[in-house]
Amino acid sequence: MAAIQTREIQYTAQDGQTLIGYFAAPADTQPVAGILVAPEWWGRNEYTEQRARELAEHGYAALAIDMYGDKKVTTDSQQAYAWMMQTFESSNTIVNRATAALDILKLQAEVDGNKLAAIGFCYGGKVVLDLARANAPLQAVATFHANLSTATPAQVGQVQAEILVLHGELDSMVSLDDVAKFREEMHAAQVAHEVIVFEDAKHGFSNPLADERAKANGVDLGYNADAEQKSLAAMYELLAERLA
């Protein structure tokens, strides 16, 4: 694996919120493709930062983004829900904050601004899907156990990214009906996409702390090592294809 460098980057969203991202990139100076990493509803925590570091080890520059401001994090589902819902209050908040992150990512010396992608986990999956729906200059988007719903469905010619959705068959928060509706949205908008459904996988399947969080909060999450491994492999395959 490549040697990497990391740093925090402060930036400001259109709504005036100060956001603090966590940036990881290969240690050499040649510009490489840039990837946004959007967090679960817990906030920009160690898990999100770990995924950014892994991307850097694979040769990408990655920015784990802050959606709540001041890099707030929690392990309490009620607090996470409250913070997440605040970003739903205005129809523009999610896309504006994600766009601010993409803009700051492009400005980094280590990043080739013509090669951009985004990945997201749970709530972060919605963040990157909404960013793609808003015609962001992304070549690829991958989501893990994502919230697939939107108030602004994709339109023909408005999604530049190829989209990969990685979903757990036993996800009680995002149903297979929700997945079917998402497929219909993508087909109607003529968006290149793939959905992979993992057997015996619950919401949160990619996070080794999912069982611990489920027990502490009484929510239906579950880690699945096989689904984690296969979903990450599919993501890296998409990134390699689209960002070559």
Rank of each mutant, 00 (worst) to 15 (best):
L176K: 15
L243F: 07
M235A: 14
G218D: 00
C122G: 13
N92L: 09
G204N: 04
R133A: 11
A82M: 01
L221F: 12
D70T: 09
S91P: 02
F88N: 10
V73E: 04
A180M: 06
G125M: 06
V37C: 01
A117H: 01
M85R: 07
E57L: 11
Q78E: 13
Y123R: 11
L102H: 03
I196N: 13
I20V: 14
A56S: 01
E228F: 02
V174N: 07
G21C: 02
S91N: 07
D28V: 03
D15M: 03
V219C: 04
Y81V: 03
Q158I: 07
D220T: 07
V159M: 04
E228G: 03
A38V: 09
A52V: 06
L63I: 10
Q86M: 15
A56T: 07
A98K: 13
T150V: 12
R53F: 08
G113K: 14
R183A: 11
A142P: 02
A192N: 15
A201G: 10
A180G: 04
Q229C: 00
N217F: 06
V141M: 12
L170E: 14
A52K: 01
G125A: 06
D15H: 08
H203K: 08
Y123H: 12
D220N: 14
R213C: 05
A154P: 02
L238Q: 01
L221D: 07
A225S: 12
W83D: 09
G34N: 11
K115Q: 13
L107H: 02
T74C: 03
A98G: 10
H193N: 12
D70F: 06
Y223V: 05
K71Q: 15
K202L: 09
D211M: 02
A189K: 09
A151T: 15
D200C: 09
Y22N: 06
A80W: 00
Y47H: 14
M186S: 10
D200Y: 13
V95E: 12
A25C: 13
V141P: 04
P153L: 08
N217C: 02
A161F: 00
Y223I: 10
T12A: 06
M173A: 08
A189E: 02
L221V: 01
K71R: 15
L36V: 06
V127N: 08
T87D: 08
G69W: 07
F88G: 11
E40S: 15
A216L: 10
K230C: 00
E212F: 03
E46H: 10
L55T: 08
A3L: 10
G222S: 06
Q79L: 05
V37R: 01
P26V: 04
D28I: 00
G222N: 01
Q14R: 13
E169Y: 09
Q17C: 12
S90K: 14
E169P: 02
A210Q: 10
D178E: 13
F182M: 04
Q190D: 13
A82P: 05
V127S: 04
T152V: 09
L138N: 07
L176V: 04
W41Q: 08
P208F: 12
G21P: 03
Q139P: 11
A109R: 11
Q50F: 10
L105P: 00
E194K: 14
Q17F: 03
L232Y: 14
A134N: 10
Q10K: 14
A244N: 10
P153G: 01
G120H: 05
